[in-house]
């Protein structure tokens, strides 16, 4: 069974939508310590574009574009990064926020109460958000690709 996906209009529009979707997902991930959001929702937002590609390009077309081995590696790297950041503060406790309030990198001391929001604050929180974002994006994309590509494949 050959599945070449939908028309060229849908394919083009899905290519155009990559940019706003990925930018919004990255925004949600990187502002996780300032506004509602974070690694989990941001990764899910970025994974929606993979779902759109799967629908638009079909089983055969999407197999050439989306490489699930890279996603598998990214998933492992995200989780390892998260665990490494957790272990990096082991001199105090597991998951200690060793970067916060040091005044150095990501250690901006913020005033109490409402403030405009400083992107490089929060210690390890933004870094952990990025790690979790990579992991969630890769895991959700890999799950979708596998379940979409190999479901209902009776001809083999």
């Amino acid at each position: 069974m050959s599945d070449e996906g939908m028309s060229v209009i849908v394919k083009t529009v899905s290519c155009v939508l990559v940019v706003p979707t990925v930018v919004f997902g990255l925004y949600v991930i990187m502002h996780g310590h300032l506004t509602p959001g974070g690694g989990f929702p941001g990764g899910a937002v970025m994974a929606t574009i993979v779902a759109l590609f799967l629908v638009a390009y079909g089983k055969d077309g999407s197999r050439k574009i989306l490489k699930k081995d890279c996603l598998s590696a990214a998933e492992s790297i995200g989780l390892l990064l998260f665990a490494a950041l957790a272990f990096a503060g082991i001199s105090v406790t597991f998951f200690s926020n060793f970067l916060a309030n040091t005044g150095n990198w990501f250690g901006t001391v913020i005033p109490f109460g409402p403030n405009p929001g400083y992107l490089v604050s929060g210690g390890v929180l933004p870094l952990m958000n990025i790690a979790v974002g990579i992991e969630v994006f890769a895991a959700l994309s890999a799950i979708m690709i596998l379940m979409f590509s190999y479901s209902g494949d009776d001809s083999k």
Partner: peptide, 13 residues
């Protein structure tokens, strides 16, 4: 934690 978002602070710290 130096984070404005208390939910993120609770989740990750």
């Amino acid at each position: 934690t130096g984070s404005n978002n208390i939910v993120a602070a609770v989740l990750f710290d």
